[in-house]
Computed example of a mutant assay.
Amino acid sequence: MRYYSKKGPIITIITWSLLMGLFGTIVILLMNGIDNSDSLFGLIIVSISLVFVIWLWINTYYEINNGDLKIIAGPFKYALISINEIKAIESTKNIITSPALSMDRIEIHYNKWHTIIISPKNQIKFINELQKINPKIVDKTYNKNSINKSVM
């Protein structure tokens, strides 16, 4: 089952500002003309950056399949985690770079010391799906509708 990343207002504003800036740069470069290799190189780099940001925005998701959690961010296969290795899930507002398009995030603790931060649109359904596969996952999130409840 595939869960797309929630898109929060802060990251939406940042992303769309970046997209408008990149698009505006392309327009300016084209209006001034491609008269040398530097202009062409700049146009190529800015165009690739624009496509990359759009790809990240459209194609960031988390997939539960065959006992694994696959995390995809644009063109990158970010992580493949065995759901049976997940120990706990907790709410976080950590701003660290992660495959999450919202500040409404959850941090997944797996293996012995590994963590990853993601932001599925429907966190309750996502956590419940993980807990169906691994009922030992401790839910430390703020939601009250998931299967396992723990004291915060």
Score class of each variant (00 low, 15 high):
100 A>V: 08
70 K>H: 11
82 S>R: 15
45 I>S: 01
91 S>R: 13
51 V>F: 12
104 D>A: 10
55 W>P: 02
103 M>P: 02
111 N>G: 06
105 R>M: 06
51 V>K: 05
84 N>S: 09
48 I>F: 00
71 I>D: 00
102 S>K: 03
45 I>A: 03
98 S>G: 05
74 G>I: 06
56 L>V: 15
77 K>F: 09
86 I>G: 06
84 N>C: 09
42 G>Q: 08
89 I>Y: 05
80 L>C: 07
110 Y>K: 09
93 K>G: 12
54 I>K: 04
43 L>H: 06
112 K>T: 11
51 V>L: 13
46 V>W: 09
113 W>Q: 10
99 P>E: 05
107 E>P: 00
80 L>S: 04
98 S>D: 06
66 N>R: 12
94 N>K: 11
51 V>P: 01
74 G>F: 07
55 W>D: 15
106 I>N: 09
101 L>H: 10
76 F>C: 04
59 N>C: 06
90 E>M: 11
88 A>F: 14
45 I>V: 07
43 L>K: 08
70 K>A: 11
84 N>R: 07
49 S>G: 09
78 Y>R: 07
58 I>G: 14
41 F>T: 07
69 L>T: 02
46 V>K: 03
84 N>A: 05
74 G>R: 04
108 I>R: 01
47 S>E: 01
53 V>F: 05
50 L>T: 10
44 I>L: 04
69 L>V: 07
84 N>K: 14
42 G>F: 05
97 T>I: 05
100 A>S: 13
107 E>M: 11
111 N>F: 10
99 P>R: 00
106 I>G: 11
101 L>N: 09
98 S>L: 06
104 D>F: 10
109 H>S: 14
109 H>I: 09
41 F>L: 08
47 S>A: 04
80 L>T: 04
65 N>K: 12
74 G>L: 06
61 Y>H: 05
103 M>V: 03
40 L>T: 10
50 L>C: 08
47 S>W: 00
88 A>S: 15
61 Y>A: 01
93 K>P: 00
87 K>V: 14
84 N>I: 11
102 S>Y: 01
55 W>C: 14
75 P>Y: 01
104 D>G: 14
105 R>L: 03
68 D>R: 12
82 S>P: 15
70 K>E: 08
85 E>W: 03
111 N>M: 11
81 I>Q: 00
52 F>R: 05
64 I>H: 08
109 H>K: 15
87 K>Q: 15
52 F>Q: 10
103 M>I: 08
56 L>H: 08
51 V>S: 12
